[in-house]
Design a protein around this nucleic acid. Structure first.
Length: 502
RNA sequence: GCGCCCGUAGUUUAAUGGAUAAAACAUUGGCCUCCGAAGCCAAAGAUUACUGGUUCGACUCCAGUUGGGCGCACCA
């Protein structure tokens, strides 16, 4: 990775560990730039003199203390061959060090269909898992099924004709006269599994809350009791989560007669689940939570500490809620009233590729307004097609050329500014993976894909690929092929198809 | 009341404390005798909610104000 190499060079020249590179917006400031001279209050020229490398066309001092790096074309040309060699492995990193990471997402209650609110966590979770995988982690996708507790009681009430959940699944169950709650849950989970499939998500495990009972739940409460972290009050059993920074203690086991369903709270289940996950050897737990559950983070971290785990090994990712808009006005989504747009509906209307791109383009911590009519109307103009078009265009060129394996020895003929710009964009993929694996800002992926498509289209405009000049044709075909590889790589990270024709 | 998140072109959103705040859609104009016009080029459009502070430098960090979302159960 070029960025890493430059960082190392600067570290060596300055003796400073903390070196950060930026990619300037304006080309005249180079391909990469650092403000290290400013931070160290040193003369940039002094640092530049210590830099010994053939990576650069030139390195210059500029502005109030920047050092700007211009990558040499020889280096860039070589990268085309590198990409062709690595193919789908291009962009694979080792920062995950083969560690096992468990990514839990969606985990919606089995009481009705998944809706557009669940779509956000679903697509983000799946794609982040892809990114982790590419960054060198061993990834495990998990869906936690809350198949006990209050919502199941309410589901049962629904089956018995009392007030409850109103949706196509419960209506179907009522019609069938299903009264067996286990069968009802099974039916709904199967439906949800199918929706996940439609979303292009493959969970490695559907973990049932009930599977923690009675053994693991009992073990965990026994463990906490032994540690003196629980006490009894008003007939209930409480966990001293305040000892670990939570703002109040939490109930683990309800007082009898205060509940019409099981006495153990979801929180006890969650502690047992936490222990179960670590027990399965995961080094890191990533959990996607809708904003309505953000208050749950401190008690989860408290539980981890009580169990003796490092709370830093748990990373909750809170995404803001999706607001449903109809005819310009907000509509409250509710599983009770049945007001929501299901994911199946959404994908049917706008296609999976558009749906994924739509949710990925927005930062998970910005609020999202979702208007199905608007989404339908704009789906044809979704930028995802812009990216896919670039891919299809490459396929068409490659098909036309009749040269299947372009010789990459000719890459030194790639000297046009548009060719070099394209290569510069191609070699940013590993940086995108690295940054995203570290900060979880998934919108970087669609952003990158669009920029890549743009520089390719510009290359296409400026440089005719298939021409009389055979050597140049080989070189440009090699570059096109490299672009195809990177585009396909990026799209597949997002779970979006890379069509050869459109 | 306390806590978390958000306020950026007409709209939907970007922007690891950096250099002229970026794109898509919408609007206006130009480009197919030439590898796919689902493309390219250009114009216009922003006091980054407001006020202070820190900094050589703030959309970004801090404090306050304001508008909105969410949470503060022996619900999950």
């Amino acid at each position: 990775m070029i960025r890493q190499e430059i960082v190392k060079l600067v570290q060596k020249a300055t003796g400073e560990e903390d070196v950060r590179l930026e990619t300037p917006e304006d080309k005249k400031y180079g391909d990469y730039s650092t403000n290290i001279a400013f931070r160290l209050k040193k003369d940039p020229k002094e640092i530049i003199n210590k830099l010994k490398s053939n990576l650069f066309e030139k390195v210059e001092a500029a502005g109030p203390g920047f050092i700007n790096f211009f990558i040499s074309k020889e280096y860039l040309q070589k990268q085309v061959r590198e990409i062709l060699k690595q193919k789908n492995n291009f962009g694979n990193l080792k920062i995950g060090q083969n560690k096992k990471v468990n990514v839990e997402f969606i985990s919606a209650n089995p009481t009705g269909p998944l809706h557009v609110g669940n779509a956000r966590g679903g697509f983000c979770g799946d794609v982040l898992a892809n990114v982790f995988n590419k960054a060198g982690y061993r990834v495990w996708r998990e869906y936690y099924v809350n198949d006990r507790g209050r919502q199941i009681k309410v589901l049962q009430d629904t089956l018995e004709g009392k007030q409850g959940y109103k949706n196509e699944y419960t209506e179907k169950l009522i019609k069938k006269g299903e009264k067996d709650i286990d069968k009802a849950v099974k039916y709904i989970v199967k439906k949800i599994e199918n929706t996940a499939k439609i979303m292009g998500i493959k969970f490695d495990k559907w973990f049932y809350e009930t599977s923690l009972y009675p053994k693991e739940a009992k073990q965990v409460s026994g463990f906490l009791k032994k540690k003196g972290l629980v006490y009894e009050k008003d007939g209930a059993i409480w966990f001293k989560s305040t000892e670990f920074g939570d703002d109040k203690d939490r109930v683990l086991v309800r007082a009898e007669k205060k509940t019409t369903y099981e006495e153990e709270t979801y929180f006890l289940s969650d502690i047992a689940y936490l222990k179960n996950k670590f027990g399965r050897g995961f080094d890191w737990l990533v959990i996607f939570l809708g904003a309505e559950h953000h208050g749950y983070v401190p008690r989860l971290k408290a539980a981890a500490q009580a169990l003796g785990y490092d709370k830093e090994k748990i990373t909750p990712i809170v995404y803001q809620l999706v607001r449903l808009i109809e005819a310009g006005k907000e509509v409250k989504m509710s599983k009770r009233t049945g007001v929501f747009v299901t994911i199946d509906e959404l994908i049917e209307e706008v296609s999976l590729d558009v749906a994924r791109f739509f949710f990925l383009t927005r930062s998970h911590d910005s609020h999202l307004n979702f208007d199905l009519d608007l989404a339908k109307e704009q789906s044809e103009k979704n930028p995802v097609y812009y990216v896919q078009y670039a891919h299809a265009r490459i396929c068409s060129i490659l098909a036309k050329s009749e040269i299947r394996n372009p010789k990459s020895e000719n890459v030194k003929l790639l000297t046009h500014a548009s060719e070099l710009d394209l290569i510069k964009q191609l070699i940013k993929l590993p940086e995108v993976i690295e940054d995203t694996a570290k900060d979880y800002q998934l919108q970087r992926l669609p952003q990158y894909a669009m920029e890549l498509a743009t520089v390719f289209h510009q290359f296409y405009r400026d440089c005719h690929v298939i021409s009389e000049d055979k050597n140049l044709t080989q070189a440009r075909l090699a570059l096109s092929l490299a672009t195809q590889i990177v585009l396909k790589n990026t799209l597949s990270l997002m779970g979006i198809s890379a069509p050869e024709k459109m």
